[in-house]
Amino acid sequence: MTYQDIFSALADPTRRQIFENLRDRPKTVGELAMGQTVSRPAVSQHLRVLQDAHLVSVEPQGNRRLYSIKRDGLKELRDYLDCFWSDAFSAYRAEIARIVEKEGK
Rank of each mutant, 00 (worst) to 15 (best):
D52Q: 14
F7S: 08
P26R: 11
S57A: 15
N63F: 05
Q45V: 02
Y67C: 12
Q61H: 12
L74R: 09
G62E: 09
E20C: 10
E101M: 08
Q45A: 02
D82C: 13
D82N: 06
K70H: 10
R48E: 10
F19H: 06
Y92W: 11
R65T: 08
T37H: 12
P60H: 02
E103Y: 15
V43Q: 05
R65A: 09
L22Q: 00
S68E: 15
H54F: 00
V58G: 06
I69E: 03
R16D: 04
Q36S: 06
I18V: 07
R25S: 09
Q45D: 01
I99Q: 07
A42C: 04
S57D: 15
T37M: 10
I96G: 11
A88R: 05
L74K: 05
Q45W: 01
C83V: 13
D12E: 14
I99A: 07
I69C: 05
S44E: 15
E103F: 10
Y80G: 02
S39H: 04
K102D: 10
F89H: 12
V43E: 14
D24A: 14
E101F: 02
T28I: 09
N63G: 08
T14N: 09
S39Y: 03
D82F: 13
I18T: 02
E76R: 12
A9E: 06
L10T: 03
D5K: 09
F89E: 15
T2L: 12
Q61D: 13
L32W: 00
A53N: 07
A11K: 15
P41F: 12
E76M: 13
